[in-house]
């Protein structure tokens, strides 16, 4: 029982990291229709940057926030390249983000080398009903809850957030009222960068990150987001938490090396199940 509780909470924490990543993916996809393959890279950059900031003496909190800001700037750069050139299709943009992921590898290896790195988060454990849970896990869960609440408020309460939703709902009408849809797309990329960055700084203390961790991160983020067809942050959250808990349970009760297999298989099943309820005509029309 205490094992179960421990796995559940640390699974939820990992799931929260995936959820942040997925919400960035969803934000970018909703506004720009681009599936951003570089989303995992944002987390890697922020996680490694936070470690560097801490090691040069920046205090906790400041270091993490600064790293998230860096990830936001990287998001802007990715956005500028992926959608800045007029007439770039969503397909081309995905391939471009794949390329940017590679380019990032080069920069990351130059700065941080190619070994996995980690930085200390919140130290210590808490005992609940006989289970020892890392404090960092609670931090991740709490911050994620706050971020999601802020995100919800941003999209439903602020004028800029509504303008972003407007671009997602109807780009033509958005242009008609004078909204610069490309600029809004860049705003989405900055947000996506920061959300990915938040995932990175929160997860790095729980699991060391190296330059090529982005593939697993993006795959998990995508798996979570695909539950809501990359458009529904709420469903992405549910997907991510399920994924995180399922992976941790598999690792805990069965075999750690199978945890990603379970997640990936889950993603495949969901996608295929969804596709059986959709026709080619609907998809081509929606493009």
């Amino acid at each position: 029982m205490s094992d179960f509780l421990q796995y559940l909470i640390s699974g939820l924490a990992v799931g929260c990291g995936f959820a942040l990543l997925a919400s960035g993916l969803v934000t970018i996809h909703r506004v720009t229709h681009v599936v951003n393959f570089a989303q995992g890279m944002f987390a890697v950059v922020a996680g490694l940057t936070a470690g560097s900031f801490l090691s040069v003496g920046l205090p906790h909190g400041l270091a993490e926030v600064a790293a998230v800001a860096v990830a936001g700037a990287v998001g802007l750069l990715v956005g500028l390249i992926a959608i800045g050139k007029p007439g770039t299709s969503a397909q081309s943009a995905l391939i471009a983000t794949l390329g940017l992921g590679f380019a990032a590898y080069a920069v990351e290896i130059m700065i941080w080398g190619d070994n996995p790195r980690s930085h200390p988060g919140l130290r210590g454990t808490v005992e609940i009903a006989g289970a020892y849970v890392q404090k960092q896990s609670f931090l991740v869960i709490g911050v994620t809850a706050a971020v999601f609440a802020a995100l919800l408020a941003f999209f439903t309460r602020t004028y800029l957030g509504k303008a972003l939703s407007a671009c997602a709902a109807n780009p033509y009408a958005a242009r008609a009222v004078g909204i610069n849809v490309t600029r809004m797309g860049l705003v989405a990329f900055v947000l996506g960068g920061m959300l990915g960055g938040a995932a990175g700084v929160l997860l790095t203390p729980l699991m060391p990150i190296s330059y090529n961790s982005d593939v697993l991160l993006i795959t998990n983020g995508f798996a979570a987001a695909v539950l809501g067809a990359l458009n529904r942050p709420g469903l992405a959250l549910i997907g991510a938490l399920t994924l995180g808990v399922a992976e941790t349970m598999v690792a805990g009760y069965y075999e750690a090396s199978y945890q990603t297999v379970v997640a990936l298989a889950l993603m495949l099943v969901i996608m295929i199940w969804q596709s059986s309820r959709r026709t080619a005509l609907q998809e081509e029309a929606a493009r």
Binding site: I81, I95, A96, L98, G99, L100, G101, F102, A103, A104, Y105, A106, I109
Partner: peptide, 9 residues
């Protein structure tokens, strides 16, 4: 890696 990235983009 830089070549892959730059070339692709």
């Amino acid at each position: 890696y830089a070549v892959y990235g730059v070339l692709l983009v």
